[in-house]
Every structure is written in structure tokens, then in C-alpha cells.
């Protein structure tokens, strides 16, 4: 396998028009993803992870201003006309969304919806597409796929619908799969099954995957590398193991402490991160986390800190790694 990255994002910035005025939703995001690699994006809601995903898909609203570069196999995607983007979407890059209940068109049969990307991108006949759709539905574990291919979305449960959207996303054997909180809206019992399904499909087809989640546990179990996002920037990135064992950024540490744990002693209170997520419209000039950080000092607020390498391919956007890394290893 070549070392050339499949996806290369450099200094991505996204400016959105919100009702509170323009907001810099994403800034300075860079990463590379090789074929077959898996990458996790973790952070609280509003940290810019979904915006990053939509930027990759080219599905941000027309009013969004995108800067930087996104390359797929070396070809620039930023500024690509929509017609050209349409040939990539669902074909080379696919996406699974958070809400299976609303992600399917209630008026079309599921077979039609799964076959749609095939018809759009591969030039197969309607009969072949239908046949393939049944095979896909079967593969994602939808019971009685051949019989239920002509059923409508409302006739399925949430978990089944998410299986259908996965079949849809995989129809054209994409190179990259973006899964945006694919299990958040599902019952806990179903979550594991869906994640296992995604993982096995990714491995089976040699796809790259970007998995977005607010759940550290999901990230830890499903991806090789991860990026922690906060306030529109990546505050820490590296091998999943390295990030979890060393945790360079105070925010990563905070996230880790705030996660609920099974088997915690009764009466132990969940640690929370003091303060609230900053409004994207009025992000501070310096480190976006400074206002909630316990070790922040004046120079943190002066300018956005640069990424500091704290290990092999492990970067932390913090100028106080000396202190934070000491406090690190919060204990797993």
C-alpha cells in the first residue's frame, strides 16, 4: 500500500453565517488519512467536528466560507463545483448520519433509496441495482432483505434504519466512510451491534473511516488514530493508544475525567469541566480552552498556541504541556 495519503486536509477553516452573525466554526484543522486507516473525531457538541465532516463532503451551506485545502488522492476538493462533487459523494466518500429516523425519505422504498447511489454512479441497470441493494441490505444484517426491500422506512426500527443508511453509504464501495455519531440516537443495546457492523465492513472492504463521536469509549474501541476538537480547532491528535495513555491537553484530560464509568464507587461524583463551551461567534483570540482551563496563564490568551509534538505523531495544541503532561496519566 502506498504511503501517499488518501485524504489530506491542510489548515482547514470554515466560516458559517449564523443567526448571531458570522462564526469561525473550524480553524487550522490539518490531518492526513491513508487508505484503510481509521480516524476518530471527538469533542463536545458545537466543537466543529460535524462541520469538518460536512466540509469534507462538500455539504456545507452555500453561505459558508471554506479556506485551506482538502485533497482526495491529491485532487483539491475545496472550491470544486457542485456537479464534480456530486460524482464523488456517495461514490468515493460516503457518510452516515446521526438520526436514522429522519435520514431516510419516508416516501421512497428502502430498496429504491439503497439503489439510488448505484444508479447514480455506476451505470448499472435498475434490475441489477435492485439485486445489489438486496445483497447490501442482507450484508448489513437486515432480516428478510429480499422480502422487505420494497418496504418503507416507517416500517423499520431505529437500529434497522441505521443498517439501511449504512447499506446506502456502502453501495458504491467508497474509499472513505464518514460516520457522524452513527449510534448516538440508538438504544444502548443496539449501539454495540451497529459499531461492530461498521468496523467489520470497514475492515472487509479496506475503507478508510472517519468516526465522529462525543463518546470517548466509542472512539477508544473503534479507531487507530484520534483527534480531540475544541472550539473549532484540533487540540490534540495522535494514535488512540498514545492519546489515551498520555493525554497532553488539559481539555482531553477534562473529557476523560467527565466520562461516566461502570464500577465507579457509589457516591463518586462525575467530574465536570467548569465553564461552558464558548460561542463560536465570539471565540477568544488565544487558546479557545483558556477560559475553562485550570492551568491557563496570560500568554495562553495572547495567540492560538501552536501544535507541540509530545511523542511520535502525537501533537498537542498547548503551550503548557510541561505542566499538563505532568498532571496527565489521570489513571485509566
Amino acid at each position: 500500500m502506498s504511503d501517499a495519503p488518501l485524504i489530506e486536509v491542510k489548515d482547514l477553516g470554515v466560516r458559517l453565517n449564523t443567526s448571531h452573525g458570522p462564526a469561525q466554526a473550524v480553524r487550522g484543522v490539518s490531518f492526513a488519512l491513508r487508505r484503510g486507516e481509521t480516524l476518530g473525531l471527538v469533542g463536545e457538541s458545537g466543537c466543529g467536528k460535524s462541520v469538518t465532516a460536512l466540509a469534507l463532503m462538500g455539504l456545507l451551506p452555500d453561505s459558508a466560507v471554506i479556506s485551506g485545502s482538502i485533497r482526495l488522492d491529491g485532487a483539491e476538493l475545496v472550491g470544486l463545483p457542485d456537479t464534480a462533487y456530486c460524482r464523488l459523494r456517495g461514490n468515493r466518500i460516503s457518510m452516515i448520519f446521526q438520526e436514522p429516523m429522519t435520514a431516510l425519505n419516508p416516501m421512497h422504498t428502502i430498496g429504491h433509496q439503497v439503489a439510488e447511489p448505484l444508479l447514480r454512479h455506476t451505470g448499472v441497470s435498475a434490475a441489477e441495482a435492485r439485486h445489489e441493494a438486496i445483497a447490501l441490505l442482507d450484508r448489513v444484517g437486515l432480516p428478510d432483505a429480499a422480502k422487505r426491500v420494497d418496504a418503507y422506512p416507517h416500517q423499520f426500527s431505529g437500529g434497522q434504519r441505521q443498517r439501511i443508511t449504512i447499506a446506502m453509504a456502502l453501495a458504491c464501495q467508497p474509499d472513505v466512510l464518514i460516520a457522524d455519531e452513527p449510534t448516538t440516537a440508538l438504544d444502548v443495546t443496539i449501539q454495540g451491534q451497529i459499531l461492530d457492523l461498521i468496523a467489520s465492513l470497514v475492515e472487509e472492504r479496506g475503507m478508510s473511516m472517519i468516526l465522529i463521536s462525543h463518546d470517548l469509549g466509542v472512539i477508544a474501541e473503534n479507531v487507530e488514530r484520534m483527534m480531540v476538537m475544541y472550539g473549532g480547532t484540533v487540540v490534540e491528535s495522535g494514535e488512540t493508544n498514545a492519546v489515551f495513555t498520555r493525554m497532553g491537553h488539559p481539555y482531553t484530560q477534562g473529557l476523560f475525567r467527565a466520562r461516566p464509568r461502570l464500577g465507579a464507587r457509589k457516591g463518586t461524583r462525575l467530574k465536570t469541566i467548569a465553564g461552558t463551551v464558548p460561542e463560536l461567534a465570539d471565540l477568544p483570540a488565544g487558546c479557545t480552552f483558556a477560559d475553562r482551563c485550570t492551568i491557563a496563564e496570560a500568554r495562553c490568551r495572547a495567540a492560538l498556541p501552536a501544535v507541540v509534538d509530545v511523542g511520535a505523531a502525537h501533537g498537542v495544541r498547548c503551550i503548557r504541556t510541561d505542566v499538563s503532561m505532568d498532571a496527565g496519566g489521570v489513571g485509566a
Binding site: 456530486c86 459523494r89 457518510m95 448520519f97 438520526e99 425519505n105 419516508p106 439510488e116 447514480r120
Partner: peptide, 13 residues
């Protein structure tokens, strides 16, 4: 609606 975004993600113009 969400399914409009899904349809766009499939590559429909």
C-alpha cells in the same frame, strides 16, 4: 429535513 442531506450525500445534485 435530514433525508435531503442524505440524498445529497449520495451524490445527487
Amino acid at each position: 429535513e435530514d433525508f435531503v442531506r442524505t440524498a445529497r450525500a449520495k451524490g445527487l445534485g
